[in-house]
């Protein structure tokens, strides 16, 4: 009997090892450990044994069952793992195929430039001021030291609606309005972005509508040197630390002294090339000390208060920064143009 049990164990273990599927294994389990299996059969014959032998044989039978069960379990685990692996192998995909696209648009390049400039000046304590695009002649010209009949009005031929109302030719009226609102008191530190309009035929370098961004600082001790320092911070942050700035005298009716700011040419490093017209410098913006007439008209005592102002064209800056060659691209909105400005710098 004992021998028969050992035999069964060996036989079962051999079959288990040879089994190749979970089904086969289950059949083995039923065959050997089931109620109709050979071990049960053997145990049925236990009645013939003596009272001493019976527990010994019982224990042995259980050992054999246990051994077979353990073996089956181990084999089952192995087979299951293999089955999983086999299944996963069939689930293999081509990971180089493109993903499901997530649609993302982006800022217009001019907005991108304007927000960059806004953020730069916000960091220096400026607020963003906005105003109407259709303006009174007073704020657009007169309050800026451009009385009627002033020859400099020719510099910016305007779109008039009535004799007193026009499309603003610059964002400077926002400065005039802001100063007026401050009722002769300082300090003011603002940056004014927005659309402006001039009578120009649209071509590669002219647009009847374009953007401007201007800055104004008014206080009790604002100096020309502060303007120079501020513009240098701006130029280096906007165009790179290696850029030099230079101020050249110029003329604007609303500032005196007036200057234009150039930055050193990035392309040639200042040696002169076609981009900078051989000068090594590229004109970026106009600036100056606020004209005393402008201060007085807005209610400031020009003996006590001084200020500086500067203004630039986001189109020009975008053209320089990104190498755009035609200003009309900004208003055509060709998606092949727009989508080039998606990358964060």
């Amino acid at each position: 009997m004992q021998e028969r049990l050992k035999e069964l164990q060996e036989e079962a273990i051999q079959k288990i090892e040879q089994s190749a599927s979970l089904k086969e294994l289950n059949d083995i389990r039923v065959a050997y450990l089931g109620k109709k299996g050979p071990i049960t059969e053997v145990l049925r014959g236990m009645g013939k044994l003596s009272a001493e032998e019976r527990p010994v044989m019982g224990a042995l039978a259980n050992e054999v069952r246990e051994a077979i069960a353990v073996k089956i379990e181990a084999k089952q685990k192995g087979l299951e793992e293999a089955a999983v692996l086999e299944k996963l192998a069939t689930e293999r995909i081509d990971v180089t195929l493109p993903g499901r696209p997530v649609k993302v648009g982006n800022h217009h390049p001019l907005t991108r430039i304007i927000e960059e400039i806004e953020d730069l000046f916000i960091g220096m304590g400026y607020q963003v001021a906005e105003g109407p695009e259709v303006e009174q002649d007073y704020y657009n010209f007169e309050a800026l030291n451009l009385p009627k009949g002033h020859p400099a009005r020719d510099m910016q031929d305007s779109f008039y609606i009535t004799e007193e109302i026009l499309l603003r030719t610059h964002t400077s009226p926002v400065q005039a309005r802001t100063m007026e609102k401050h009722e002769g008191k300082g300090p003011i530190k603002i940056i004014c972005p927005g659309k402006v309009y001039r009578r120009d035929n649209d071509d590669a370098t002219h647009s009847h509508q374009f953007m401007q961004i201007e800055g104004l600082v008014v206080g009790e001790n604002i100096r020309m040197s502060d303007l120079k320092g501020t513009l240098e911070v701006f130029a280096k942050k906007m165009f790179g630390d290696d850029r030099e700035i230079r101020l050249r005298p110029s003329f604007f009716p609303f500032t005196e002294p007036s200057v234009e700011m150039d930055i050193s040419c990035k392309i040639c490093g200042g040696k002169g090339c076609s981009v900078c017209k051989q000068t090594g410098w590229i004109e970026i913006l106009g600036a100056g000390m606020v004209h005393p007439n402008v201060l007085e008209m807005a209610g400031y005592d020009s003996k006590k208060y001084t200020g500086f102002a500067f203004g630039m064209g986001p189109e020009r800056i975008a053209m320089l920064k990104y190498g755009v060659d035609d200003i009309r691209h900004f208003y055509t909105n060709d998606v092949r143009f727009l989508k080039q400005f998606s990358v964060e710098e």
């Binding site: 000046f121 960091g123 530190k189 206080g219 009790e220 320092g229 501020t230 230079r246 050249r248």
Partner: peptide
């Protein structure tokens, strides 16, 4: 203008 120094405005600050 090259000889004018570079400074930043001083005095009461404004929140940006």
């Amino acid at each position: 203008y090259d000889n004018i120094p570079k400074t930043l405005p001083i005095g009461s600050s404004t929140p940006g």
